[in-house]
Simulated assay, not measured.
Amino acid sequence: MKRYQQFEPVLISDFSVSQWEHPEHNHNHYELILIRKGSGKHIVNGNPISYESGMVFLLGPEDCHHFETGEETHFTYIKFTDAYLYRKTGDHQKVIHDLEYLIKSRETHQTGFKLPDDELHTVRLIFNVIVALKDHILYNQDLIWYQLLTLSRILKRNMPELKTSGTQVRNLQAIFCYIHKNIYEPDLLRTRVMANHFNLAADYFGNYFKRNTGTTLRNYIHQYRNTLISHRMTSGKTSLKEIAAEFGLTDASHLMKIIQKK
């Protein structure tokens, strides 16, 4: 499978094609895609999804995909790397959390977003601003960044809520999304609290997760949190004290103990 490598922190593409020319591929970056017009199939990780004008897709480095255009399609791409995602911290933490949750929530990657008319109108306008900035990306990186954060907030509030109905209690995706959404709130990730949320006994909940994932709930939470912490540390823009506070930890020493724990 072909893998595209992007070394620039952010790139913007805006183009129309009658026939898609790229083979099935993945990449080392994230892609936020707006279908401005047209229809066809978007094949994501082997799953065909019918697309139409106004749909939005978010893909991560682990996703393989390609398009099959049914009619001429106008695409706008925002392609960004981890370096761009974590370029700012501090007051931007909450919106970075929104992007992290969207990126990790697999159901958004698979099916895309079908936005209500008022939200779609706003999203189209934001994409128009981004396209207008694309010829001078280095100069406009901050402006593009703020548009991206605004898009993430709109997309997050349009995600389907994960209910704890009988048909979804055993849906691992719902459990994963709960973890990703609450990774900054340690008290909400206790087995007893999570089991209660999904209307299950604590012992059954832990056993169910391990049986279906091959790892313990505690280990999954630990590994996912460490991945996010590693991104913060690699960016060099956040102190250990600030990272600890962001993840609800006592102090920097508590943070280091968690990182070093196997």
Rank of each mutant, 00 (worst) to 15 (best):
P9K: 06
T108D: 08
S253W: 00
I258P: 07
I96D: 00
Y224H: 15
M256P: 00
N26F: 04
F113C: 06
L151A: 11
I103L: 14
T191R: 09
L34D: 08
T89N: 06
L85Q: 11
N45H: 01
F176D: 02
R211F: 10
L11A: 12
D118P: 00
Y139M: 10
V17M: 14
L125N: 12
W20P: 01
N182P: 05
D251R: 04
T215N: 08
Q110Y: 07
Y4M: 04
A195S: 13
D118L: 11
I96G: 03
R87D: 12
N171K: 09
L228P: 04
S235R: 11
V129Q: 15
S235Q: 11
G166H: 12
Q173R: 07
H65E: 01
I78Q: 05
L255A: 05
E68A: 07
F15T: 02
I243W: 03
M233T: 02
F205V: 06
Y77I: 00
I96N: 05
N171I: 00
S53Q: 06
I12M: 10
I43V: 15
L115K: 03
W20T: 02
D203I: 09
F127V: 06
T216G: 15
D63Q: 08
E72T: 07
H42S: 12
E21L: 13
Y224E: 15
G236R: 07
A245V: 01
L59M: 14
W20A: 12
A83L: 06
T216C: 05
I78H: 06
W20E: 14
S152P: 08
H197A: 03
Y208A: 08
I183W: 00
I33E: 09
Y4C: 01
V131P: 13
R87H: 02
H222L: 14
L188M: 15
R170S: 02
G60D: 14
A245T: 01
N182M: 10
L189V: 10
Q110G: 01
A245C: 02
T108A: 11
P186S: 09
K261R: 13
N171L: 11
Q141Y: 04
F57H: 15
K163R: 13
D135T: 05
A202E: 15
P61S: 10
G46I: 06
Y84A: 07
K156A: 12
Q173E: 14
Y204T: 14
R232D: 14
K261I: 00
I144M: 02
L138F: 09
L99I: 14
Y101C: 13
E24Q: 08
V169L: 15
Y146I: 08
T167A: 13
L138M: 09
Y146A: 03
L143Q: 04
F15R: 10
E100S: 10
G38S: 07
T73I: 09
I144E: 00
T216E: 11
D118V: 10
T81A: 06
T215S: 09
L115I: 03
D203H: 02
F7A: 08
E246Q: 08
Y220R: 03
Y30S: 05
N47V: 02
Q168L: 10
L34W: 09
Y224D: 13
S16E: 14
